[in-house]
Design a protein around this nucleic acid. Structure first.
Lengths: 297, 297
DNA sequence: ATTTTTTGGTCTATTTATTAGACCATGAAA
DNA sequence: TTTCATGGTCTAATAAATAGACCAAAAAAT
């Protein structure tokens, strides 16, 4: 390793790749005389003839050793090139891609990204908002943000934040009925998420409700909350996702003293071993700090 | 591939392998300032920090990128090293064995092999100096060098060089008699080689010599020339073999205007089809170049 | 048949890259 | 407190790489 004529090997790999000395020179942007010189010196160093030339306009032909060394050196130099590119890619690309649910993207993540962008203008954040869970090792995604009872094995899980659940209604509903209603008297809006089902609320705060499962169903928390804001019924809300609507009064909280606390309700999920890229770490740290801040204020 | 700083990567791989700049410098047999420079330039080229240094006596520590690049580059450079070693190995051993006459070995070949060794340190040349002609297909011999009227069939013959014949005498003889003598008045020294017999000289430059065949006989040209240098008589010398003695004045040329030219007097003889081994080709090419250079100067 | 073009080879002079050597700062070890 | 080993940085020297010119040989174009 110490003394191997690396520039000569590069020149020879280019000769092998392009089939001739002048094509190699053009490929390397140097004169053919330099390439010719490198070839002769490499042959001398190795003590091996690598090429033969019949003269005139004929291209070189490779000896068996030349074929072998050409193939090997080209492969290894390309691998070195790739390693360098990967190192650059690792830091140089400042695009971070997050996969999460549309509701979380819409109601928690996106409202905050403008501020992240102010703090870190060099980093571009892409969001893949999809109900479908992206495999943590999907190369297009730097990390997932998911709700659920983690951590899960085979991936790198960081708790992002807790969550609080309570019933909410629209402004008009609230003005009409106030905060302390009988759930059985009104339409209950249903989310698909088992953690935010009315059964879970009922098991903690029992009320007499003959048809607990009756009422409109929504495919996402976002739609559920929109429906509630439209006074279509009562929703069992995630405080994190509802915080904006609550802040501006589109949604009103019912039963002020009652709530369910979900510790470590949201997780940052990365491939095992995490991501070595600085930009990813920066964003994760920022998000976790933001989660600790509790609100958009 | 075109522009990657291969020497910088080599230096970095050595840093990674040895754990520090000064150890790497020792490993590469260069000063640490060169290694330090390579590292900084590589970092600048990549736009990536590869190492961090706490200062003082502490060794460097590697960033994640540095770890990755160190591992990769070390692996790939070792692979390149192995490829080169394999190419060399493939040519079998880098020992080339030549069979030739003792005279030619002593007076032409060996004086030049030191220089060949400087140009091609990787190639070892063995010389079998033997009057007996080795069969060209003898596996122990890569090629023969022989005098004679080639080419011969069944083998691969390359002309090596021409030869010139002229009478020579020792220094004292020359000082006593000068360059223009009558051969009949002196002892003629005889070689076994028919091409260098006094008959062949006589047929070109006739002199009245009653006993042309009389005088000491020598089994080799080397001994013949040594005898002449000892003033034991006059030898019909091959210029190529006598060039060193002529140069230092041990032998003096007689009849400055008379000489016999033997075109293609020396031949490189290989098995039919030649030898595929690079080292053999390198040596043959070098020798033929040397022969064209005419003298040891 | 002759001329032009393209190939690789080799040389000298120039440019660029690499290196040595000197001096420095820092922190651990003696 | 002094010595020693680490890495950093600078200038001058040395080595390596390169350009440019010219060449020979053979294929392609005229």
């Amino acid at each position: 390793m110490k003394n191997i004529p690396l520039n000569g090997l590069r020149a020879f790999a280019a000769i092998y790749e392009t089939g001739g000395i002048r094509p190699a020179a053009r490929s390397l942007s140097i004169t053919h005389s330099s390439v010719s010189r490198h070839l002769r010196e490499l042959e001398a160093w190795l003590g091996v003839t690598l090429v033969s030339h019949e003269g005139g306009r004929k291209n070189l032909s490779f000896t068996a050793q030349g074929e072998m060394l050409g193939r090997d050196s080209l492969k290894q130099l390309r691998a070195l090139d790739s390693s360098c590119a990967a190192i650059r890619e690792m830091t140089g690309s400042n695009t971070v891609t997050i996969a999460t649910t549309p509701s979380f993207a819409a109601r928690w993540l996106l409202p905050r990204l403008a501020r992240f962008n102010e703090d870190h203008p060099a980093i571009e954040v892409s969001v893949i908002a999809d109900q479908k869970i992206h495999h943590p090792n999907d190369a297009r995604v730097d990390f997932n943000i998911r709700m659920g009872k983690g951590p899960w094995s085979g991936v790198n899980c960081l708790p992002l934040m807790d969550e609080t659940l309570f019933p909410v209604a629209g402004r008009e509903f609230f003005e009409c009925h106030g905060p302390d209603i009988a759930l059985a008297d009104h339409t209950l809006l249903h989310d698909r998420d088992p953690q935010t089902s009315w059964q879970s609320w009922q098991s903690v705060f029992p009320q007499e409700i003959p048809n607990l499962g009756k009422g409109p169903r929504f495919a996402s928390s976002d739609l559920l909350l929109r429906a509630a804001a439209q006074n279509l019924g009562i929703a069992l809300a995630r405080e994190r996702l509802a915080e904006e609507d609550l802040a501006i009064g589109n949604l009103k909280r019912l039963y002020p003293e009652q709530k369910i606390h979900l510790a470590r309700a949201y997780w940052i999920i990365q491939p095992e071993g995490g991501s070595p890229r600085g930009a990813v770490q920066v964003l994760i740290n920022w998000l976790r700090q933001e989660a600790r801040n509790k609100s958009l204020a």
